[in-house]
């Protein structure tokens, strides 16, 4: 992605594009991501696959995704910054 043509140096500031308030699901392996993607109820809430283990969730749908993952028998951990809370 052409963020900036000027190069950063090892001591300088690194050019980045920041995506704020993103909702993601990260799985242990790609197979588990496939399993989640194949779940029809989740398909509507998953925007797409960012990497083979990372799925992008539609904004505002995290609770529904958590509930559906739990229905599937998973026990997802919820990470909000420093603290880890119940899923």
């Amino acid at each position: 992605m052409p963020l900036d043509s000027s190069r950063s140096s090892t001591s300088g500031r690194l050019p980045v594009k920041m995506h704020r308030r993103v909702c993601l699901v990260q799985t242990e392996d790609a197979l588990l991501a496939e399993e989640i993607l194949a779940r029809k109820k989740l398909a509507q809430d998953i925007v797409g696959r960012l990497t083979d283990r990372v799925l992008l969730i539609r904004p505002g749908r995290v609770e529904a995704v958590l509930a559906e993952l739990q229905k599937m028998g998973h026990t997802p951990s919820l990470k909000q910054g420093e603290k880890e809370t119940r899923g």
Binding site: V16, M18, H19, C23, I36, T75, P76, S77
Partner: peptide, 15 residues
Amino acid sequence: ERITVYPSAALLEFT
């Protein structure tokens, strides 16, 4: 520990 949900993460996209 197989699934982690980040409800409000920040992603940095590097050049």
